[in-house]
Structure formats: C-alpha cells, structure tokens
Amino acid sequence: MRLTCPVCGDRDHREFTYKGDAVMLDRPAPDAGTDAWDSYLHLRDNPCGDTRDLWYHDPCGAWVVVERNTVTHAVTGTALASEAKR
C-alpha cells in the first residue's frame, strides 16, 4: 500500500500510523450535548466503500486525511488535515 504525503510525496505505508475515522476533525461545540459528544467519541460507521481516515506521517510529522475505498483498496486522494475541509 502506498500513500501520498501532501508534503513528502508518494511513500510506503510503513512510514504512516493509522489513527481512525476523519470525523475526529469535526469536534462538537463544548455545549453540543451528551448525544453529540457520545457519538463523536465512541460511534463509528463501518463503511463498505469510500471512507476518510486520519493517518500520521511519522518522519515529517504531517497529519493526513486519506480518502480510500474499503472494497477496492484504491486510495483516491490525500490532503493535509490542517487544510482539509469536510
């Protein structure tokens, strides 16, 4: 598996650490209520198809949003988490 770090370029996946679903970028407001926070912290979809994950590129320190497909294993895009808009 190859992932493209938006900073360094095309790299082997051993250079990356998987974090989890990119919904973590959408932190609810502090007063959003327990349901929103429960969902944010604990509830994840298990999609069959397109998904967005957060990966960390260990050597350069970039957080990367990776768009990939869980069925075909195709990686369709990467972006810096600091610039990603949902």
Partner: peptide
C-alpha cells in the same frame, strides 16, 4: 528525505 532506515526515523 525524512524517512525510515530500518526502524529508525
């Protein structure tokens, strides 16, 4: 390149 050499950054 910032990368790995063996298991080292």
């Amino acid at each position: 390149a910032r990368t790995f050499l063996g298991h080292m950054s």
